[in-house]
Amino acid sequence: MQILDPNTQQNVSTASTLQIPRMLPLKQVMHYTALSSTTIYEMINKKSDRYDPTFPIQVKLSKGRVAWVESEIVAWIEGKIVARAH
């Protein structure tokens, strides 16, 4: 989408300023993390022995549909990589 900037009389793209978070479905989270769906859901369940408070919580998009924020999954993976060195 192009808008006309009244100060410069030039077209400016609004897409370059808008950062929409990318949402990942469960299958992609499983692929990127190498975890099963069962493990992922146990990691976000506070009552589970596998609960991991650092693992990103899913976002409910609609009834029966959830996804995870890509940047949060990336940060979690990067944290695991950094932690292995210590």
Rank of each mutant, 00 (worst) to 15 (best):
M1L: 09
M1W: 04
M1I: 08
Q2L: 14
Q2V: 08
P6H: 07
P6C: 05
P6Y: 01
N7G: 11
T8Q: 11
Q10K: 15
N11D: 11
V12R: 14
V12G: 03
S13E: 07
S13F: 02
T14W: 13
T14Y: 12
A15R: 07
A15D: 11
T17E: 09
L18M: 13
L18Q: 06
Q19K: 12
P21F: 01
R22D: 03
R22M: 03
L26M: 13
L26I: 14
K27Y: 01
K27G: 10
Q28E: 14
Q28P: 00
M30D: 05
H31V: 02
Y32E: 12
T33I: 09
A34M: 08
A34D: 10
L35G: 00
S36V: 02
S36M: 06
T38W: 07
T38Y: 12
T39H: 08
T39D: 06
I40V: 11
I40E: 01
I40S: 09
I40D: 01
Y41D: 07
Y41P: 03
Y41C: 12
E42M: 10
I44W: 00
I44V: 15
N45Q: 10
N45H: 13
K46C: 07
R50I: 05
P53W: 00
P53A: 06
T54A: 14
T54F: 10
F55P: 02
F55I: 09
P56K: 04
P56G: 01
P56L: 04
P56D: 04
Q58L: 08
V59R: 12
V59M: 13
K60I: 09
K63L: 03
R65L: 12
R65N: 10
V69M: 08
E72T: 00
I73P: 06
I73L: 02
A75G: 08
W76K: 06
E78P: 00
G79A: 07
A83W: 05
A85M: 08
H86P: 09
